[in-house]
């Protein structure tokens, strides 16, 4: 198992599990599997940031990753 710092933002925050800042998952788990296992509908996810960089659903998680998931958002 590895630990990640997991965050869901805006309308997705309701899906955030407990102990999210040191959330345990299997190494190389995909982001897609991570969020579907937590019940997040895939079509509500727009932005995936891993350690500050945009990644795809297929990204495989590494120990210590900082993961931020957003629905479509904008401003300015």
């Amino acid at each position: 198992m590895i630990k990640i710092d997991l965050n869901f933002f805006a309308t997705l925050s309701e899906y955030l599990p407990e102990k999210n800042d040191c959330y345990e998952v299997f190494e190389d788990l995909s982001v897609e599997k991570l969020i579907t296992d937590l019940g997040v509908p895939l079509d509500t996810v727009k932005l995936i940031f891993i350690n500050g960089k945009r990644e795809k659903l297929s990204y495989q998680l590494k120990n210590g990753d900082r993961v931020g998931i957003f629905p479509p958002v904008g401003g300015g």
């Binding site: 965050n7 933002f9 805006a10 309308t11 727009k46 932005l47 940031f49 500050g52 945009r54 900082r66 931020g68 957003f70 629905p71 479509p72 958002v73 904008g74 401003g75 300015g76």
Partner: peptide
Amino acid sequence: KHPVSGEGLPAFGTNVLTNVLNEAG
């Protein structure tokens, strides 16, 4: 129908960007 102008902006306003830009570094 666009999720940003139809949902995100009305619900959270422009300040929803604080977490986005912070995550993006």
